[in-house]
């Protein structure tokens, strides 16, 4: 992965009728990276993506692609392509027609080769003459990918492309998509509200909240060293004990009191297969969730426990 940035947003803002959708957002996306915009609905991640695609124009700030200004250009003059949340396949065209749609302006020779290659890449060979209505959800998603990838965009924009799939398929497609991105080497700008998805797939994550970027970093960095309380709470589970943040896996539960331990009462358990989360209420009323390996944690609700941790695991974060 090169260090050079293919896409840069510099202090970009966008309002819709006085309502701030994106406020002063700056991003640098390295070439070839899988870059995710993560946040709850209404955080401005989709608007950011639409600003890059050209469906919206920024009120302030600049967008640069490959060293040239992108903002101000209409979508059809930007070398970025989008995979829409609902895929937006043209219902009156076949799979082949959909994939060839954007190739019309390219040199005529080589089109057939490019279509064949991309069909192989997304494993749709043999389905060229189907109409979108005859495809499964997963196949439709792959047509949407192929239609965009065949144009060899500088950045591929993906707007929650997995949310329309059923949960079983989603995990499988997640791995496939990551593998495809690595193989093709195209830069992905991936919008999602699913933190697990972002952590599993991304090289970099920008966590957004209320139109602003809270933190940008690699998944491990964002998970272990969150910059704000919002980031800490949004990624994974976070306990707040006495004002400091503690991940469930940092908490130890014992039946006997330990040094600096807090006394609590078990209120419930969440069984997740290989691990169990044990919820307790501390004496000051705070609720915490501790992770225990399954089998090692036969605490029962109502039982008194002592909770302790290493000071080095404490996260002290600004409000």
């Amino acid at each position: 992965m090169g260090q050079e940035n293919v896409l840069e947003l510099r202090r970009v803002s966008k309002r819709f009728g006085g309502q701030l959708a994106v406020g002063d957002v700056s991003l640098s996306v390295p070439r070839g990276a899988f870059f995710s915009l993560l946040g709850p609905s209404g955080c401005g991640k989709t608007t950011t993506l639409r600003l890059v695609a050209g469906f919206e124009q920024p009120d302030q700030g600049e967008i640069w692609l490959n060293g040239s200004r992108l903002d101000g250009l209409p979508p059809y003059r930007r070398n970025v392509n989008t995979v829409f949340q609902n895929y937006a396949l043209f219902p009156h065209l076949t799979v082949q027609g959909n994939i060839e749609f954007g190739l019309r302006h390219k040199a005529a020779n080589g089109i057939a080769d490019r279509v064949r290659r991309v069909l192989d890449q997304v494993r749709l060979a043999g389905k060229e003459s189907r109409s979108p209505a005859q495809l499964s959800g997963g196949e439709r998603q792959r047509v949407a990918l192929a239609r965009a990838l065949v144009l060899e965009p500088d950045v591929l924009l993906l707007d929650e492309p997995l949310s329309a799939l059923d949960p079983q398929l989603r995990k499988q497609v997640r791995a496939e998509l990551k593998e495809l991105q690595r193989r093709v080497g195209v830069t992905f700008l991936f919008v999602t509200h699913d933190q697990e998805e972002a952590l599993a797939m991304s090289d970099y994550i920008a966590v957004m909240s209320r139109g602003a970027v809270e933190q940008i970093g690699a998944p491990e960095e964002i998970y272990h060293r969150p910059a704000t309380r919002f980031v800490a709470s949004f990624l994974g589970t976070m306990n707040w004990i006495g004002g400091v943040g503690l991940r469930p896996e940092a908490l130890r539960m014992t039946r006997e009191a330990a040094v600096n331990s807090r006394r609590g009462v078990v209120t419930g358990k969440t069984f997740l297969g290989s691990v169990v989360y044990v919820e307790s209420q501390l004496e000051n009323g705070e609720i915490c969730s501790a992770q225990a390996v399954n089998g090692a944690a036969n605490f029962t609700p109502g039982e008194v426990v002592h909770i302790s941790w290493n000071e080095s695991d404490e996260l002290r974060l600004p409000e």
């Binding site: 050209g54 059809y76 392509n81 989008t82 609902n86 937006a88 043209f90 749609f101």
Partner: peptide, 15 residues
């Protein structure tokens, strides 16, 4: 008509 179809066309280079 789904507005994202028009956006998809523009996205794929159609004026």
């Amino acid at each position: 008509l789904d507005p994202s179809l028009m956006e998809a066309a523009a996205d794929l280079g159609a004026r």
